[in-house]
Simulated assay, not measured.
Amino acid sequence: MAQPIEDFLAMLAAERGAAANTIAAYRRDLEGAEDAIGNLAAASRDSLASLGAAWSGLAPASVARKASALRQFYGFLLDEGLRQDDPSAALPRPVTRRPLPRILGHDDVETLFAQAEREAESERSEAVRLLTLLELLYGSGLRATELVSLPLSAVPRDAPFLTVTGKGGQQRMVPVSGRAKQALSRWLAIRPEGHFLFPSRGGHLSRVRLFQVLRDLAARAKIDPQKISPHVLRHAFATHLLEGGADLRVLQTLLGHADIATTQIYTHVDSARLVALVNERHPLAQRAGRD
């Protein structure tokens, strides 16, 4: 790996507070581009233009992500005086649309919880841990990384909140439901020793393992495992709160979104309520009712 790339990644960590997963993603994209065209720091516009063909089999969103990483890298080189020109204009600019989140219905959520609660009645450590994980994913809307990396100190003794460190090292307070608090109490009474809330072999439970235990639970609950993931449960948290009348700004805070435009994607699921609201509250609708 060329030194300019290492310096760029170090800048992401130090100045932008980028998370380890974000830095790893940038590294993969930059390494892949360098494998394709050689030294990125010295690459020409023609070399960058050739990446369009190399990426032709990728989805537009993947191409856009890779091109964005390269554009930021060349912006860094300019700022540091390591290049006098920016060749990134030659990179492809695919038209992408933000995909709508996969939605889990209320019935599936209830079925999933019923299965987890039945299994937790055994008081087996793995079953109680799984119920606690499920409660925090759906009840508090945590990201997978935020959840598995929670230190034990994030759980307060009295206040019904968790202190969560999200993307970019930003901290936020996340409310814990009464149900989740009960599950947490059960788990804290039997959890192994360790710095993390969900310890595992000297560290914490991995994101991959979290993904696996959720899909295994879905299979036991007779739900298609492909429908279930930590992120789908986070989407369900947001969607169902919005259906219940939650304010979009409040939802933005709970999810830890830096930009409310990211949160607004959830508004599409509440279209039926919005149509009813217009029919009931719009002045012309009220006038038609009087007529």
Score class of each variant (00 low, 15 high):
residue 202 G to Y: 10
residue 187 W to H: 02
residue 16 R to K: 15
residue 1 M to D: 03
residue 221 A to M: 13
residue 17 G to S: 13
residue 120 A to P: 00
residue 123 E to M: 09
residue 146 E to T: 06
residue 60 P to N: 13
residue 119 E to H: 02
residue 124 R to Q: 14
residue 19 A to M: 05
residue 113 F to T: 00
residue 40 L to M: 11
residue 17 G to D: 08
residue 22 T to G: 13
residue 58 L to S: 14
residue 222 K to D: 15
residue 91 L to I: 05
residue 50 S to P: 10
residue 172 R to T: 08
residue 238 A to T: 01
residue 121 E to C: 09
residue 105 G to A: 08
residue 109 V to A: 11
residue 247 D to P: 12
residue 171 Q to M: 10
residue 21 N to I: 11
residue 186 R to C: 14
residue 25 A to R: 00
residue 122 S to R: 14
residue 232 V to D: 04
residue 83 R to H: 12
residue 273 R to G: 10
residue 161 F to I: 15
residue 59 A to N: 12
residue 4 P to H: 03
residue 89 A to L: 14
residue 43 A to M: 08
residue 29 D to T: 01
residue 208 V to C: 14
residue 115 Q to W: 01
residue 264 Q to H: 06
residue 90 A to I: 03
residue 213 V to I: 13
residue 280 E to I: 01
residue 1 M to C: 05
residue 171 Q to E: 15
residue 58 L to P: 07
residue 187 W to G: 03
residue 132 T to G: 00
residue 16 R to F: 11
residue 235 H to Y: 12
residue 149 S to G: 12
residue 231 H to Y: 14
residue 54 A to P: 07
residue 61 A to I: 07
residue 243 E to M: 03
residue 178 G to P: 12
residue 16 R to H: 15
residue 257 H to D: 10
residue 99 P to V: 05
residue 112 L to W: 01
residue 183 A to M: 12
residue 203 G to N: 14
residue 276 A to H: 11
residue 128 V to C: 11
residue 285 A to Q: 15
residue 221 A to V: 11
residue 159 A to L: 14
